[in-house]
Each structure stands twice: as C-alpha cells, then as structure tokens.
Design a protein around this nucleic acid. Structure first.
Lengths: 140, 140
DNA sequence: TTATGTGCAAAGCGTTTGCACTTTA
DNA sequence: TAAAGTGCAAACGCTTTGCACATAA
C-alpha cells in the first residue's frame, strides 16, 4: 500500500510510536527499543504494529530509517528534526549514534557525477570509530 | 573462530568461490549469484559453505563485504582489487553497482573529527541514483 | 591420521503477512 | 458502519549452527 498521499488514521499506537521517537535521547531508536519503551504505556502493543507504523511514518516523511550499514537492526529518527542532511557517527565501543549536523558531500557528488555520468539522488553514509568518551578512555 | 592469523585449508570450494568473484564482471557478487554460478562447476556446493568461506576470506582480508545499506543481501568484492578505498554507486533502476575509484572523504573526516572529537576508523558510503544508461533512457 | 571443512537439516533473527477482531472517522 | 488499523501466529528471506561425514595436509 502506498501511503504517500493517503490519509492515515490517528491511532493510539501511532501516537505512542511517534512520541517515543520524539522523546528519545538522541532520537535514534530501533524497533526493539521502541517496543520496550512503549510497553510501559501500552501492554498490548505488538511488534508488527510498530513496523507497520514506522513504514507509514517513513512514507509520509515524518520519520527516517537510518541504515547503520552493518548487520544490526535499523534505527529510526525524526526526519523533520533538521532541515538539511546530516551524517551518523557510530561508536564501535559503546554503540552511540552521534549526528554530525552538516552534509558537505555536495562537491564529492558533483565530482562523481561529472566523472561517471551517474546521477546521484541519495546517499547513505555512516562513519565508524570511537566517540570522544571512548576515545579518551582508550588513551589512558 | 578467528581466522585472521590462522592457516586455513585450500579446499576446492574455497578456490571456486574466489575464482567466481575474481572472474565476475564488476566483481560484485552476492551469495545467491556465487552459489548459482558455482553450481555449474560443482553440483554439490552448499550455501552455508559459501557463507563460511566468504567470512574466512573476509577475515583474511582477501574479500570485502559491500554493505549496500538497504535491506537487500550483501555483496562481496575482491579487497585487493584496488589499493585505495572507493565508493559504490548503486543504480535504483537496473541494480548495477559501479565503483568510483577515489575516496575523497579525507577532508570531510578531518572536519568531523575536529568538530566532534569522534575518532573515525572506517566509513561506509553508498550513493544511490541512476547509472548513465538508465539516466539517458529516462531523459527520452 | 587428525584437525579442518563439508553438506544437510534445522534454527536464528529481524521483518512481513494473513486473518479475524477492533477501532477510527 | 465501513474502511483502516490491530494483535496474534505463522511465514519470510538471509544467515548461522549442530552434527555426522569427507578431505586436506
């Protein structure tokens, strides 16, 4: 079902899911985290409902799936939380996902397009490494 | 099992898998493609064997897993096929995976490290869009 | 000869679907 | 009150594992 231009109903579950992502710390949550968090307010919520609503919210542009590019589950974030694209820095030590609030890929993309004839519409970029905290710990 | 510094045996299956990737067109193959291709030479080969060998070859640095960052299966490529990092351009139309043989992310990574204190060790980058062919088709 | 690798079947895991029931509008 | 959304169970697709057998060194 394509819900891009479709009315969808304002269910308790959808509200809970959105509130959950909105109120989350870094606003990056995977399905399991959303599920466990909502269960405190709604014992009945089910995993499929979370997937279904996340898909709808994503199609509507409310939420964005963050591909961490490894084999672990996807994360979701609010997509209106910032106007411009940003990158995700994932700490291999503690698993933190940190936003870097600039894109800066425009010139690289231009270069690629000029050299290859490939028309870039989207990119998915993740940086792996150590967050400030874990990096400092390691240096001791 | 960590095979990074371990002798592993030179089995027929491993040879077939490596040959298969080496002889593939763009040298990007997923497990199913490898399986189907090898089946022509070895009726008995099994999927788990392919996964096991790919993991070993990856740990030994012979092969590299390409995370296409969406929900489709991973691809593998020779990791000694080039000295420096490169990016992957994936065509949303025909599924082609094209290499862009330059990295050019150094300055962006430096900026990120300076501004955030995050120590970047690796990145995974995929660009989505239309390859030259599909892009030209679309313009007609 | 023995540790390593294989094929098979079965399980694992995140995600999706079918269906009867419930809820929103 | 009818269309959309829910919860449950079961299926899905990709990947991994357990185990008895085969094979490389």
């Amino acid at each position: 079902m394509n819900t891009q231009n479709k009315e969808t109903r304002n269910t308790k579950q959808k509200r809970l899911i959105l509130d959950c992502i909105k109120s989350s710390n870094g606003r990056h949550m995977n399905v399991e985290e959303i599920y466990n968090s909502i269960k405190k307010h709604d014992e009945q919520i089910s995993i499929p409902t979370i997937y279904r609503n996340l898909r709808i919210l994503e199609e509507q542009g409310v939420v964005k799936k963050v591909y961490t590019s490894d084999d672990s589950p996807s994360f979701y974030e609010l997509s209106d939380s910032d106007e411009h694209a940003h990158h995700h820095l994932i700490c291999s030590e503690c698993g933190a996902i940190i936003d870097f609030e600039e894109d800066l890929l425009d010139s690289l993309e231009k270069t690629i397009e000029e050299k290859t004839g490939f028309k870039i519409k989207d990119h998915r970029v993740v940086f792996y490494g150590l967050c400030k905290k874990c990096s400092e710990k390691e240096n001791k």
